[in-house]
């Protein structure tokens, strides 16, 4: 995920100051996420340095001046380039579960069935939460950003569980 491009995207809707950017990212763009303030300002500094945004200092009564950031033409081009290119697919293939199974199958006392059972329980617990939260989301008019993330969570967990079934079948053939 590229915070840099997310910020360009938010600024494409209109100028914002740092605090507004952070709050729009956390509340509207990527629900339930956290973006620390230091990261927002460090990213904005780099975007300024690269000429992708510019800023204006706005004087405020009784308060310190605030910087309002806006997209430059170059920034708009960079945003277009990012949107127009395929993302690197996040497959998370060599995960912890895989590693545990590969270790367990090599050890004489390795309980790979136990590993599968534990990983499956964890995945089912989360899938139970995600499917029912997803069902509620339809009833409660939850923002689209949340329902789409829940869909992704459900489908990934489903895939993980199906893969665990295959592992069980294949490892069972290896060591009946």
């Amino acid at each position: 995920m590229s915070v840099r491009h997310a910020i360009l995207g938010l600024l494409a809707e209109g100028p914002l100051h740092g605090y507004e950017l952070r709050s729009a990212y956390e509340n509207e763009l990527v629900p339930q996420s956290r973006l620390n303030a230091g990261q927002v300002y460090a990213t904005l500094d780099r975007l300024l340095r690269d000429g992708l945004v510019h800023h204006e200092v706005v004087a405020q009564n009784d308060r310190p001046d605030k910087k309002v950031f806006a997209l430059t033409a170059q920034g708009r081009d960079e945003l277009g380039r990012w949107l127009g290119h395929a993302s690197k697919v996040d497959l998370d293939l060599r995960n912890e579960t895989f590693l545990k199974l590969m270790v367990a199958r090599r050890l004489p006392e390795g309980d790979w069935r136990g590993v599968i059972a534990l990983e499956r329980r964890g995945a089912f617990e989360r899938l139970h939460q995600a499917t029912q939260a997803r069902a509620r989301a339809d009833r409660d008019a939850t923002p689209l950003s949340i329902t789409l993330l829940l869909d992704l969570a459900v489908l990934k967990l489903e895939g993980l569980l199906e893969w665990l079934d295959r592992c069980e079948e294949a490892l069972g053939k290896e060591t009946p």
């Binding site: 590229s2 990527v30 617990e125 989360r126 939460q129 939260a133 509620r136 939850t142 993330l149």
Partner: peptide, 21 residues
């Protein structure tokens, strides 16, 4: 276990915090 709200479920899923660029 009993079900939490959609937002709570999302909060418990990883990968939503912004990574460092």
């Amino acid at each position: 276990p009993p079900v939490k709200s959609g937002a709570d479920v999302l909060a418990s899923l990883e990968g939503l915090d912004a990574p460092e660029d």
